[in-house]
Design a protein around this nucleic acid. Structure first.
Length: 877
RNA sequence: GCCGCCGUGGCGGAACGGUAGACGCAUGGGACUUAAAAUCCCUCGGAGAGCAAUCUCCGUGCAGGUUCGACUCCUGCCGGCGGCACCA
């Protein structure tokens, strides 16, 4: 027995070196075992890892190590999402080149990740800012271009005035840029777009097949794609005053049933008809200008009044040529959705109602609740959007909403004007094409050339990659590529005359939309190696933060389809299993003057249940504040380096897994880390005790086991069954609990044996050996360094990282006699111990003979006895 | 506004419709020690009864319902969190 403490600081680098030298985490593409691809979202090289990374990568590593032990060929790679604005910001602030800054950060973070003892195949490491990566991305871009999955078009874009770049819709949060936080402006620019909307329906439908994704993420994606079914209908315009070439207005509606409740037609301010009318009406032009200025900021939209401008035009009701509706231009109609025009039905749409009240337009209820009277039912200041029956609607009266929708569609589809149907059924999506142009330097150059005569041309394959120039300056805002003296000037690949390169670079979300495929063959000369891709893809388990539930995951799904369409992969869906982990949160501490204090400077104490915090340097009292996401502004971050160097990687890993279910937030606490550290030491002591008592590794299995030995074995195999299942279902907090239970059971068994005072019998020694081995192997995916140390202490010569998962003896999980709880009228009154396979009658008899049951019955005869075999007995009196 | 998730001890959280509170943290008590740290043992939802082993009642946000039996299923509320949002 040893009383030596386990020295993580000494042991962890030692084992890391051994793993490294033996190359045991290097993965081959031609291994005969079944493949398993586990991936965590690769980090942005900001300079230092944070606790979120520790949590994310620990979870992935547990899965990787477990799957390896289960006999799989596991791919577990790591790389760097290395393009992006922070590098340019650093360049502007510190006069350091983005490339230098990025690669230095990568080196620093790689060292940190290595100190966590992750079982990564570093030979596949990639950085998206390296030409060896982005050259293939340029190739993909050109292939997509050829396949008409990319287009260049002028469109209003979200312009971030601080970062001086365009943002995708997905990157605008509450009207502000997702990085800069600046209020976003609308600008008209010519931009490159990936035509993700080509796959709107495919992306939506396939969500149903993603059964190993969180329901929450699937829903978010469904809502984001936003499919709605409706009717596209054409309102004829009354001829007076109508501008040339406009004879009708196309309107999209999901509520054709409310057509007889229509009281106006409204156009978006940027609708072509509005523009045509504005040419001859300065007042309308002014109104449209005013609408544009309103902007996109959320507060403005919330407060904005519904405003309209009566154009004087009249639209004819499709079912009544004498019924004319006024045509307005209105500030709440969006050009981007549907046709940019609506018919307003105030009774059943709140916005339309607000508008109608303001402009004194008629409000007719045409859908009323089932039990309401059409004569008395009235709309006041709330539109009615509930279910009911049709009213005031001529031939629709009395129908359900569904039937009325169908009836209107049927009739209008048949009716023609000119040679077209008046209406047709249509599906609309909320999803927009993905604008990828960014006016930044530190990104993947878009490989096209603009020639005055030949137009926009792809860079020929032989000229790839288009490499970023390194001699750039950041003294001015804007895009350094644009003002570089020579880089953009090239000759046209077609006519040879002077031409210019595209100076926009790609959105960094492009870089992360296919890196998981590149990992399967990081050195391939083409973007992918088909054999490797076919072998490894899809990713079996992907793990990352919910913040990427829409952007990154949807883009990756699109990209995979686009790569399939261009012959680069054979799959549609990149991620078979997806898991979104919760955040790492921490208490906040504040001085009397309100300034925040970082946890590292705080001393905590607890007396009589009262937790107190003081500044450790001065003893000044601190206020303990809310538990919040770790952030620089609240100064409640904990540096992984401090934790790793004080307690070691295993303690950090263990704590990350132990306290909360992995999909929920975990509260990082000093006490919790101490607890995890105590368990590291305890496991080490327990192992050494066991090493002193256990049979040698090659001891023969005894013919029979005493009850004590049997108990030890049952505890071990019970834990084995639970931990295996819980790792597979990513319920790491429960794995931790079961490992604690096994450790507790073994401690108790050792104490019992010591209390008995006799020499350990051979069968118990064998059981201790078996249980000790299982305990360490169960702990190994979570605390790999400690496990190696313990494995060696148990006199094994192998590396536990290369050991197979223990084999479960299922027979040990089945008890011969079982103890059932006994209820009387649903309240537990006693226990009964019976043979596992006892007949219900026998159980019933045994139960009714129990003293507490008789007492609870108080002389009444039981009406019924419910025996749920191997579960419970309930006596109903 | 729409869609979704979550409400269990002092805290994080366990619990195929079947013994509510596993496991951990914190707390209180004890052992070891000159002392501290470390470690070990016990206690640990609330109220009550008993010298005691133990027993009784209440308890999973609130109000109902289904069931022999509900943290779990259903209906309606209340509270918190997240996503989307002038999407026709």
């Amino acid at each position: 027995m040893t009383s030596e403490r386990y020295n993580a600081r000494e042991a962890e680098p030692r084992w890391q070196k051994i793993w490294d030298e033996r190359g045991i985490f290097r993965t081959r593409n031609d291994d005969p075992r079944p493949k398993y691809y586990v991936l965590e979202m690769f980090p942005y090289p900001s300079g230092r890892i944070h606790m979120g990374h520790v949590r994310n990568y620990t979870m992935g590593d547990v899965v990787a190590r477990y799957m390896r032990a289960k006999g799989n060929n596991v791919l577990h790679p790591m790389g760097w999402d290395a393009f992006g604005m922070p590098a340019e910001n650093a360049a502007m602030a510190n006069k350091v080149h983005p490339k230098k800054w990025t690669y230095e950060n990568i080196a620093a973070m790689k060292a940190q990740l290595k100190s966590m003892g992750l079982s990564l195949d570093w030979s596949r490491e990639l950085a998206t800012c390296d030409p060896s990566y982005y050259r293939h991305q340029q190739k993909l871009f050109l292939d997509f271009l050829k396949a008409e999955l990319v287009e260049r078009k002028s469109s209003p874009v979200n312009w971030d005035p601080v970062d001086q770049t365009v943002l995708a819709n997905e990157q605008v949060i509450d009207g502000r840029g997702w990085r800069s936080g600046a209020v976003v402006e609308m600008r008209e620019l010519t931009q490159w777009f990936f035509k993700i909307t080509k796959y709107s329906d495919a992306l939506l439908q396939a969500i149903n097949g993603l059964d190993r994704w969180p329901e929450k993420v699937r829903l978010m994606q469904k809502n984001w794609i936003g499919r709605s079914e409706g009717l596209l209908m054409r309102f004829a315009l009354a001829p007076q005053n109508t501008p040339k070439n406009f004879t009708e207005i196309e309107v999209f509606t999901t509520r054709p049933d409310t057509l007889f409740g229509a009281s106006f037609v409204a156009l978006a301010p940027d609708h072509p008809l509005a523009a045509a009318l504005a040419e001859r009406d300065p007042k309308l032009a002014a109104f449209i200008e005013e609408c544009r200025k309103m902007g996109t900021a959320q507060e403005l939209i919330d407060k904005a009044e519904k405003k309209g401008f009566d154009t004087g035009l009249k639209a004819v009701h499709p079912f009544d040529s004498k019924w004319e509706l006024p045509v307005y231009v209105a500030n709440f109609i969006l050009m981007e959705y549907g046709t940019g025009a609506i018919f307003g039905c105030p009774a059943h749409d709140q916005r339309d109602l607000d508008f109608a009240r303001k402009y004194k337009l008629p409000v007719t209820a045409v859908v009323i609740p089932e039990d309401a009277d059409p004569k008395t039912f009235e709309i006041h200041d709330k539109a009615y959007d509930g279910t009911g029956k049709l009213a005031n609607s001529r031939f629709l009266d009395g129908m359900t909403i569904e039937a009325a929708k169908e009836e209107v569609a049927k009739r209008l589809e048949k009716e023609t004007r000119g040679n077209r149907a008046v209406a047709q059924r249509q599906v609309h999506y909320r999803l927009r094409d993905w604008g990828i142009s960014r006016q930044r330097y530190w990104g993947c150059p878009i490989p096209v050339i603009h020639c005055k005569d030949c137009g926009t041309l792809p860079v020929p394959d032989k000229d790839l990659p288009v490499v970023l120039p390194e001699d750039v300056d950041f003294d001015r805002p804007g895009n350094p590529l644009d003002r570089h003296p020579t880089w953009k000037h090239v000759s046209c690949p077609q006519c040879g005359k002077a031409a210019v390169r595209e100076t926009d670079t790609m959105d960094t979300f492009v870089d992360s939309s296919w890196y998981f495929i590149r990992f399967t063959a990081p050195d391939a000369l083409a973007p992918t190696d088909k054999a490797a891709e076919r072998y490894w893809m899809p990713v079996d388990q992907y793990i990352g933060g919910v913040e990427h539930a829409i952007l990154h995951l949807l883009y990756s799904r699109f990209f995979t389809r686009a790569m399939k369409a261009t012959g680069h992969v054979d799959i549609d869906e990149p991620f078979k299993g997806m898991f979104t982990q919760g955040m790492v949160v921490h208490e906040t501490y504040r001085k009397a003057d309100g300034t925040y204090v970082e946890p590292a400077a705080v001393k905590l104490s607890a007396e009589g249940g009262e937790r107190r915090a003081t500044l450790s340097a001065t003893g000044e009292k601190l206020e303990i504040g809310a538990i919040e996401k770790m952030s620089k502004s609240k100064r409640n971050t904990v540096d992984p380096d401090d934790i790793l160097s004080t307690f070691g990687a295993d303690t950090a890993r263990w704590f990350m897994l132990s306290d909360s279910p992995p999909d929920r937030d975990v509260i990082w606490t000093e006490e919790g880390v101490q607890g995890a550290y105590r368990f590291v030491q305890r496991l080490w002591r327990l192992t050494n005790e066991l090493a002193g008592l256990a049979a040698p590794a090659n001891a023969a299995r005894p013919p029979a086991f005493s009850p004590a030995a049997e108990g030890v074995r049952k505890a071990a195999h019970g834990a084995l069954a639970h931990v295996s299942e819980d790792i597979e279902r990513l319920r790491f907090n429960r794995c931790v609990a079961h490992i604690y239970e096994l450790a507790n059971a073994l401690t108790a068994a050792i104490n019992d044996a010591a209390a008995a005072g006799k020499k350990i019998s051979a069968d118990l020694a064998y059981a201790f050996r078996e249980a000790g081995d299982i305990l360490i192997r169960l702990a190994a995916p979570m605390m790999p360094h400690l496990a190696e140390e313990c494995w060696a202490a148990l006199a094994h010569k192998t590396l536990i990282a290369e050991e197979p998962w223990p084999v479960l003896e299922r027979a040990l999980l089945i008890e011969e006699t079982i103890t059932l709880p006994v209820q009387v009228n649903g309240k537990k009154r006693a226990d009964v111990t019976v043979a596992r396979n006892a007949a219900d009658k026998e159980v019933e008899a045994a139960v009714l003979a129990l003293e507490p049951v008789r007492r609870a019955l108080e002389g009444r005869a039981p009406k019924k006895v419910i025996v749920v075999p191997q579960r419970i007995v309930n006596v109903v009196a």
